[in-house]
């Protein structure tokens, strides 16, 4: 690779890393979230995983705090068929979103 190419690659990698560090990511559930919701941390973590797997290839996933639990319930009703969500996926995704929803 040419020197300008290496420079461009290095600068771009740095920019991406900086953006990644600053922009944050979808929140991972904590023990406190699980205790408050009365479900296991494993199920909430699995729900986050299914949410990313099933939703993010079509659109950037919304943060759970962008909606209330009721709003998430309605949003999942709207999206479940369109995204071909299996019942188990829908339940896990719903648990994650409602447990970390805006209160």
């Amino acid at each position: 690779m040419s020197a300008p190419g290496r420079l461009a690659l290095g600068a771009a990698a740095l920019a991406l890393a900086a953006l990644g560090a600053c922009a944050g990511s979808l929140p991972s559930p904590t023990t406190a979230d699980a205790t408050r919701a009365g479900v296991s941390l494993e199920r909430l973590t699995a729900g986050r995983g299914r949410y990313v797997a099933k939703c993010s290839s079509c659109h950037a996933p919304f943060a759970p705090t962008e909606r209330t639990a009721d709003e998430w319930h309605r949003a999942l009703d709207d999206m479940a068929d369109e995204a071909h969500l299996a019942a188990s996926d829908r339940e896990l995704i719903g648990l994650y979103l409602r447990s970390l929803a805006r209160r």
Partner: peptide
């Protein structure tokens, strides 16, 4: 890893 959900 995911562009939105993960750091990178």
């Amino acid at each position: 890893s995911d562009a939105s959900a993960d750091a990178l």
